[in-house]
């Protein structure tokens, strides 16, 4: 069985060519830009920008279709629930009130609430293409070295690399163990009573976890024998030094970040941009 993490696909697009470090930094900058704004204009721009990046990276839409479906359902759910929980939250944060329709009781739909919920949905929507682009175009090998270059300790980076290395092994073990236990009649579905279900979960977890623990010593020894931990620092075979395009990409992201923050600090002068003032 071949399981590749992140379904990372080796293509030769502009984004694939960027160093892992650049992509990690851009990813973080984009995420902070989105987190720090509640301005529909900035969010619309960010969404457009993320979709453009998504197109450049040539990720086949089929690959993310299913996830995208789940996301839409989740967002719809969130949209409705947020309204039910706090129907006047939009009014509260924006400070103006323009009613549209009353469902009775406290459930009065306002333009402010609708605007607030759309902004929130938009924030979520921006995150996804940014994440897709990063995870689908970054070689897992490069990921750990990139983390190390932004200042994360080498030990933690190695841990991340090991997780990605052994995830397919653990998942293959899981499949084998789960099938072998099913053959013995271990059932975790609703057919069994809750108490028995928990016992059955243990029958699956115990061999999976303990056989994983068996490997810890072997891997740790193998690493020590090859000099792991000799010094605090280490170099990374898969690290790619930054090129002209990397600096360009970083510059674009930083400019976007600065503009977005400036709008918040100097133009809107608040977290929320309120288009209803003066209606």
């Amino acid at each position: 069985m071949k399981i590749k993490l992140f379904s990372y696909n080796q293509l030769d697009t502009l984004i694939h060519q960027l160093s892992g470090l650049t992509k990690l930094l851009c990813f973080l900058i984009m995420i902070f830009t989105v987190i720090l704004t509640y301005d529909i204009r900035v969010l619309l721009f960010m969404l457009a920008f993320a979709i453009v990046c998504f197109r450049i990276s040539k990720i086949p839409f089929d690959q993310v279709k299913l996830i995208f479906g789940y996301i839409l359902v989740f967002l719809l759910f969130d949209f409705v629930l947020s309204f039910v929980f706090a129907p006047q939250y939009g009014v509260e944060v924006l400070g103006t009130r323009h009613e549209i329709f009353s469902f009775g009781g406290p459930f009065v739909l306002t333009w402010e609430e609708l605007y607030y919920l759309s902004c929130k949905t938009m924030k979520y929507l921006c995150m996804f293409p940014v994440g897709f682009v990063f995870f689908f175009t970054t070689n897992p090998s490069e990921f750990a070295s990139s983390l190390n270059h932004i200042g994360v300790s080498a030990k933690i980076c190695t841990t991340v690399a090991l997780t990605m290395r052994y995830f397919p092994d653990v998942s293959r073990d899981y499949t084998n163990i789960s099938l072998a236990q099913q053959a013995r009649g271990i059932d975790m579905s609703r057919k069994e009573k809750l108490g028995r279900r928990i016992k059955n979960v243990m029958a699956l977890l115990a061999p999976l976890i303990f056989s994983t623990m068996d490997r810890v010593d072997a891997i740790a020894n193998a690493m020590s024998l090859r000099g792991y931990g000799k010094t605090k620092k280490r170099t990374w075979y898969s690290f790619r030094a930054l090129q002209r395009n990397d600096y360009l990409a970083l510059a674009v992201c930083i400019v976007i970040f600065v503009i977005s923050l400036s709008i918040r600090l100097f133009v809107t002068k608040s977290y929320f941009y309120n288009p209803f003032i003066g209606w």
């Binding site: 290395r165 052994y166 998942s171 740790a220």
Partner: peptide, 20 residues
């Protein structure tokens, strides 16, 4: 180093259990 490996494999287990 042993803690490190335990962490790496633990995180791999975390992912497998969450997903499957």
């Amino acid at each position: 180093t042993k803690t490190l490996v335990g962490t790496g494999l633990g995180a791999a287990l975390f992912i497998v259990l969450t997903m499957f």
